[in-house]
Simulated scan of single mutants.
Amino acid sequence: MSLKRYCYSCDLKDDSKLIAEYKAYHAAGKAWPEITKSIKDAGIVDMEIYLTGNRMFMIMEVDETFDPEKKADMDANNPKVQEWENLMWNYQKELPWAKNGEKWTVLDQIFKL
């Protein structure tokens, strides 16, 4: 199985209390099971989120079944995912260059060893 990598970035609101709450929602075993199921059902094999200050970076390893548009459609039609996304908007904010309503923006790879 050949995996593909996608990398994204998003900012959190620059508030230490909100950042701590966001981290607690994402601590091991704390994300809602419906959310992790929707991630796996979309063909995402592994996902990691890293944080520096209030800027986050997400790395996803996906299998051949993953399609970003299909994932967006699946999420839009999943009430529990929409509930989670609305809750996360209390903590997240758009990057200045993001499209309206876009949380996670795709990172362009500019170097590879």
Rank of each mutant, 00 (worst) to 15 (best):
I44S: 06
V106C: 03
L51P: 02
Y6T: 08
P68R: 12
D46Y: 13
M88E: 05
V106M: 13
I35V: 15
D108M: 09
E85G: 07
Y22H: 09
K99F: 08
N54T: 07
P79G: 08
S38F: 03
T105R: 13
L95H: 11
S38R: 14
L51V: 02
I35C: 06
D15S: 01
K17C: 04
V81E: 02
D11Q: 14
I59Q: 10
K71Y: 14
M47T: 10
P96L: 13
K93E: 14
P33A: 09
M74N: 14
E48L: 08
Y91A: 09
L87Y: 06
Y8F: 15
K103I: 01
S16E: 09
W104C: 07
V81K: 02
I110C: 08
E85V: 10
L113Q: 09
N54S: 11
D67C: 13
I59L: 13
M56S: 06
Y91K: 09
M60G: 04
A98P: 08
K70L: 07
V62H: 06
W89E: 05
A42M: 05
R5I: 15
C10W: 03
L18M: 04
I19L: 02
S38Y: 01
D75I: 08
W84L: 01
M56N: 10
F66Q: 03
W104K: 07
G101L: 03
E85D: 12
D73N: 13
Q82M: 08
S9M: 11
N78H: 15
C7M: 12
D67G: 00
E83D: 07
F66D: 07
I49P: 01
P96I: 13
E61C: 00
V81C: 06
Y50H: 09
L113S: 13
G29A: 08
S9I: 02
I19W: 02
A42F: 04
N100H: 09
E69T: 10
D75P: 00
W84P: 00
K37E: 13
P68S: 09
Y50E: 04
F111V: 14
N78Y: 10
F57D: 02
S2E: 09
D15C: 05
P33F: 07
K70Y: 05
I39K: 04
T52P: 00
V45S: 00
K103C: 09
D108C: 05
P33W: 07
E21C: 04
S38D: 13
V81F: 12
E85C: 01
G53I: 03
E34V: 04
A72C: 04
A76H: 02
L18H: 01
K80G: 01
V45Y: 02
L113M: 10
L113F: 12
D46I: 00
N77M: 03
M56W: 06
V106G: 02
I19F: 05
L107D: 15
A76K: 15
V45A: 06
E21V: 05
N86Q: 14
L51S: 04
K112C: 07
N90L: 12
L113E: 08
D46E: 12
G29T: 02
